[in-house]
Amino acid sequence: MTNISLNPQQPKTAAMAERMAEVSGRSLWADARTRFLRNKAAMVSLVVLILVALFAFFGQYLTPWDNETIDWNVLGNTKELGRPSLANGHYFGFGESGRDLYSRVVQGTQISLMVGVVGAAIAVIVGTIYGAVAGFVGGRVDSAMMRFVDIAMSIPYMFVLILLLVVFGRSIVMLFVGIGLTAWLDMSRIVRGQTLSIKNKEYIEAAVATGVPTFTIIRRHIVPNLLGVVAVYATLLVPSMILTESFISFLGLGVQEPLTSWGALISEGVKTMNYGMLWQLFFPLTFFVITIFAFFFIGDGLRDALDPKDR
């Protein structure tokens, strides 16, 4: 009891404090990072994902061929002349319409990753804010906001997406709008549930008692404590966005020529599968599968790292 230094003539703590430099603490984030770095599957996936991203950004510089030029000599006899070959620089061979498949895959990777990341980002931002406000404010506001989500969720989103693309024309912007419209709904539900459990913690009560304004409480106390769940869900959302886009492109409604995506390339590959031009399916499909696996493993790793108790 006596070591409580109320009066300044107790030099013990003060002098000690001066001698010692400020100690930095280990945040929960730092702990999670350590656990994540120890997870082998997640680390391998992270490396794979980085390689895929590098391929999307810089892959084009590794080949002399671009993704537009059509080689008319190959066009008639792709099966014989269009095989993958290191010698002529067409590493992945030719695509269906006589274009270099490697460059097409680079282009498709760019578009698919962009759809995945932008779609997930919209979902995260809108869903987090919406869910946190609904959960924290509570009462009638919460009921109204969540009933709106329920109604929006009850509409089959693929139907809406297809309708949007048909009515407003098939463009990549429309694809973003369509995916963005529906992707945040699940997110807002998850975030609201988490907010409800965080809301009753004593540190929120302490902030209310101090008089911190509502939106500052949401920003400073609720959202940082939600981020773990949000991060996990976002990494799982990216592949599902890519899958959705691929499905739409596979149906022929998504990304339009001259742009392409993994889904569109796979769709083309499937058409020529029977003629023995399997490489046209193999390369885009390989990229598609390993990327989606990588995202799932990273999501798993993040979940284990962020909630060590829930394992």
């Binding site: 009560e205 302490a206 902030a207 008089g211 400073r220 106390h221 940082p224």
Partner: peptide, 27 residues
């Protein structure tokens, strides 16, 4: 001001104690 029952639960786990104590000042 108020002091709460569960000491750990009344401090935001994502903030340093410096930030926690400074919050009423900031407000």
């Amino acid at each position: 001001q108020m002091i709460f029952q569960d000491p750990l639960a009344s401090l935001n786990p994502r903030m340093t104690i410096g930030q926690i104590i400074a919050e009423p000042l900031k407000t």
